[in-house]
């Protein structure tokens, strides 16, 4: 679905932001791109929508070479949800805002209505269609932005720090919507430095550091490489740090979330005396 081949990018001022990056994200995968600020995450993202073109190597998205594809073509394949929804909202109602993208694709009448209704339903905005997006709270505005991207019908969804500036409940809501979209078959790329978020939702991770792809693979594998993560300036999620000694001693297999850990501990303690008294249920 998304294939980078020896992609490098140097800014006009001489700063080399990406160095020889190759990866492959398959259709329907939930991949996280992680790395600290300045690691090249944003630069890589800007390649996904054709805003930047590789200085060498190439990036293929659903068979399209981003260096040659037009913005509108790419927008049909890749939907972007940016950090700040306010950078895109400009129409008086939520419905019009969602319809903006499909209109740009040249769609008309009924098809637009259908797409708006569908996108709004997917993010739970149906009751707000006639409201002014500016009067909604930040969490809802974020969902308006997501719906306006979904209405374009992209297979791939790129979420750039979708939970920053949101409270816990809003963050969970947007991630629940993302998860549902993933289950429906969307390929999801989550860009974040929130490791707990990655552990809970992603399947694989790409670790960027200093413009290089330091590591890629399934989460349990990536999170067990403390050395590489440290080089990238990242800390594994708390659960992984907590269980690291037990994992190394072979007592607990790789777990990613507190729920996983709870289940594992239950299994291990089953049969032990007093286990029922220590653990609820």
């Amino acid at each position: 679905m998304i294939r980078a081949e020896n992609l490098s990018f140097t800014y006009p001022n001489g700063l080399q932001a990406l160095k020889d990056i190759s990866f492959h994200i398959k259709k329907g995968e939930f991949a996280a791109i992680i790395g600290r600020n300045g690691s090249g995450k944003t630069t890589l993202l800007k390649h996904f929508n054709g805003l930047l073109k590789p200085t060498s190597g190439r990036l293929l998205i659903a068979g399209l070479d981003t260096a040659r594809a037009r913005t509108a073509e790419l927008a049909r394949k890749v939907g972007f949800l940016f950090q700040n929804p306010d950078h895109q909202i400009f129409l008086p109602t939520v419905a019009q805002e969602i319809a903006f993208g499909p209109r740009n694709l040249g769609l008309k009448g009924r098809e637009i209505e259908r797409r708006v209704a569908e996108a709004a339903a997917q993010v739970g905005l149906t009751e707000y269609l006639d409201a002014s997006p500016w009067k909604l709270g930040k969490g809802l505005r974020q969902r308006v932005a997501l719906a306006s991207v979904l209405a374009m019908g992209p297979d791939i969804l790129v979420l750039d720090e979708p939970t920053t500036g949101q409270d816990y409940r809003q963050a969970r809501e947007i991630m629940a919507i993302t998860k549902a979209l993933h289950r429906k078959g969307h390929t999801i790329i989550l860009v974040t430095h929130d490791m707990e978020l990655v552990a809970r939702y992603a399947e694989k991770a790409l670790v960027l550091g200093g413009g290089r792809l330091l590591l890629q693979g399934p989460l349990t594998e990536v999170f067990s490489r403390d050395d590489v993560l440290a080089e990238a300036g990242l800390l594994p999620p708390a659960v992984l740090r907590l269980t690291a000694p037990y994992r190394k001693a072979g007592l607990i297999p790789g777990v990613l979330t507190p729920e996983d850990l709870f289940r594992e501990v239950c299994t291990i303690l089953r049969g032990e005396d007093h286990a029922a008294r220590i653990l609820p249920a």
Binding site: K46, N49, G50, L51, R70, T71, A72, A75, R76, V78, G79, F80, F82, N84, H87, Q88, F100, G101, N104, L105, A145, S148, V149, M152
Partner: peptide, 18 residues
């Protein structure tokens, strides 16, 4: 800087600015 971000967001919605 803000304009850059806005530009990006609208391009991602298929707004052709070229």
């Amino acid at each position: 800087e803000q304009l850059d971000l806005v530009l990006q967001a609208q391009r991602a919605r298929g707004r052709d600015l070229e």
